[in-house]
Design a protein around this nucleic acid. Sequence first.
RNA 1: GGCGACGUGGCCAAGUGGUAAGGCAGUGGACUGCAAAUCCACCAUUCACCAGUUCGACUCUGGUCGUCGCCUCCA
Length: 475
Amino acid sequence: MLSLYNTMTREKEEFTPMNPPFAGVYVCGPTVYGHSHLGHGKSYVSFDVLLRYLRYLEYKVRYVQNITDVGHLTDDADAGEDKLQKQARLEKLEPMEVAEKYTASYFRDMDLLGNLRPDISPRASGHIPEQIELVKTLFEKGHAYEAGGNVYFDVSSFPGYGRLSGRTADDQRTGTRVRSADDKRNPRDFALWKSAGEDHILQWNSPWGWGYPGWHLECSAMAMRYLGETIDIHGGGLENVFPHHECEIAQSTAATGKEFVRYWMHNNMVTVDGRKMGKSLGNFTLLRDLYQRWEPMVVRLYILRSHYRSPLDFSDEGLAGAKSGLERLISFKSRLGSPEKGSASEAVLDLVSRTETDFRKAMDDDLNTPGALASLFEYVRAGNILLEGELSEADKHQMTVLLDTLATDVLGVQLASESSGGSSEELCRILGELRGYLRKNKLFQEADKLRDDLSNAGFSVRDLPGGASEVTADL
RNA sequence: GGCGACGUGGCCAAGUGGUAAGGCAGUGGACUGCAAAUCCACCAUUCACCAGUUCGACUCUGGUCGUCGCCUCCA
């Protein structure tokens, strides 16, 4: 039974969707004004694993993840320039060109990391009518007011405000670091709709004049549009608990009178030397840069080696460890080969079922991926021992199926060495034969030179029992 | 100041009442023409520190120290 840590209750709770087998998942997506960094990677890998595991458990999941292309301001939620517009100015592009550019970049980086595409990736700018409707509803129900062309949510009208983040009314040092907009009745009130000046390119007409939606609004509007008024799981980064998710709860619940989200999930940060990796500190590493030095699957495994609710401290040592681990998994997979299906032996059946049980036990416990990986590595060792002896094709097939299911389908760790696909695979075979021939004829000097040359070119050589050699591309 | 999280071997990281998973690195051995891969063995009497509860605590309670996050935008 899968249990998930719910930020709202601060407890692990058994997960049961509202309408099984269907499950609705909404995850806060990126604001597309820059390339993705490792922090985005950790976040979206974490939720990708959630999705994959839910599907493995045979839930019919609809996964919605927004693309924020409007309304996210550079300062606090009520002031400053639109991030897209600012980036557009810097790059001398249209704001929507910026959005397209970085949306494409985001998907490219996530595809490489092995994240499945969301079922729906709604753009905030494409859902302005839904957002306006939501504001109208809040108006009608007495939760919103207009001031100076702006529309604000009246936090005092919603008693549940602060429950998710544990913040009560007087907690915040308002007015010190946050300069409140003058026309708000209460500093805690947040913008639903902002009136736009002439210099604001991204604007739409509304009952309150030309303007643009507040940042928090889009997630409520789009989540409810595609997943209904109550959604099963809503995920996002820890830093969004307050104010973003708190505001989402307020505006959604106030509008519908129904519970907005049943399980709130938040993933922890990537840190660098113990400090949060983030745009403001400027200490972020772009995924596209990381990929120059490490295979995307190494990065994915690196992320999976820590729990999603723990911080992940960025280090080359960690990445190197992940790389060795990935090589071990790949090597095991390649030892198994591509065997024919059949009926497996009891020993293998036993190992397979034991592994799957351990794996599921870890995953059921709030997606404990380090524990799940441990079960996989134990499986690899046991499997390697079995491979030393006689194994039937059916046995190998059974073991391959399990490895593919757990490592690749559920954890999303691709074990095929794609870089050596196609014609280079053929070349590797020929070079392997050559080394085997040289060794058989005791031409060790030549054989070793071939190995060294291949090594320098990024290929590994492995001599197999029986005199043949195998050449594979390094990660 | 308020809210919250965390502190486990050289590094990373599970475990939350019954006496420390797993990975990486390292050491020794088997195998090998030599390597690599693989396998075997070794690698925390101890879980920041101090009290307390308990037959028993890494695990519960209280305190101390340390680190970090949120309270402005950030996954």
